[in-house]
């Protein structure tokens, strides 16, 4: 059971994809606990289950077994609409594949993640912080991969969530853009946000006080970052 300071926790979390096709489980008995305001990096080889773990923690993928607790609430015991409300206002998710809406401008894409009034103004400001102020009116297809990645991060941060789950947020970025993203993530953490980051970027992982390692769906190491 997570303690009262726990923001996001998984206990005995397992998930299997298509066992009838001979695919092994993506997650096996994962236990982890993120304290409120903690910054944790999650590393591991491709196919080790990092994205699956993130999706399950984000309330988007019902695990085969085990539980996920968000601020003390069993996420998958909640109704669909209650879980949706958490995703809408309290939990930000930056996808590795970005998943931007193709017919909306960068600014409109960011505003989609902000349920509050004045979303247009805030989304413009958020894009400016990520160096995309000049590209706000552009469609995703008119942006580079790196720019799209930053738009996706801006959207995840738009609602100023209590928890941010980011999947390879610097994966497609040049060093300068990666620096901007790192700065944003650090600022988010410094403002009290809880951050779980999947990354292969050693520089970014080094900024996290705690590093988790996932291999073949199992959490194999949990240690302060020494990368």
């Amino acid at each position: 059971m997570a303690d009262s300071d726990s923001m996001l926790a998984a206990s005995a979390l397992s998930h299997g994809y298509l066992p009838d096709r001979g695919q092994g489980p993506a997650l096996v008995d994962v236990n982890l606990d993120l304290a409120r305001g903690e910054f944790v990096a999650l590393c591991g080889p491709s196919g080790s289950g990092k994205s699956t773990l993130l999706l399950a923690l984000g309330g988007m993928l019902t695990p085969t077994s085990g539980r996920v607790r968000f601020d003390g609430q069993d996420l998958y015991a909640l109704s669909g609409s209650e879980r949706r409300r958490i995703r809408r206002a309290r939990l930000g998710f930056a996808f590795q594949s970005m998943h931007l809406v193709p017919y909306l401008s960068a600014q409109a894409n960011v505003a989609l993640g902000d349920p509050g009034a004045g979303a247009d103004r805030r989304s413009l400001s958020r894009l400016g912080e990520l160096g995309l102020g000049e590209r706000a009116s552009h469609l995703p297809e008119q942006l580079s991969a790196g720019e799209r990645q930053r738009v996706a991060l801006a959207r995840a941060l738009a609602a100023e969530p209590e928890v941010l789950l980011a999947d390879e947020p610097t994966g497609n970025l040049d060093p300068e853009s990666a620096g901007l993203v790192c700065k944003q993530l650090t600022a988010y953490h410094d403002s009290g946000g809880t951050l779980l980051l999947v990354t292969h970027d050693a520089e970014l992982a080094r900024r996290a006080p705690r590093l988790l390692q996932l291999a073949e769906g199992r959490l194999v190491a949990a240690a302060p970052s020494k990368l």
Partner: peptide, 13 residues
């Protein structure tokens, strides 16, 4: 599908 998945993931009703 992708776009509709995004709306769902972002908690749109």
């Amino acid at each position: 599908r992708e776009e509709l998945g995004v709306y769902g993931a972002l908690g749109h009703s």
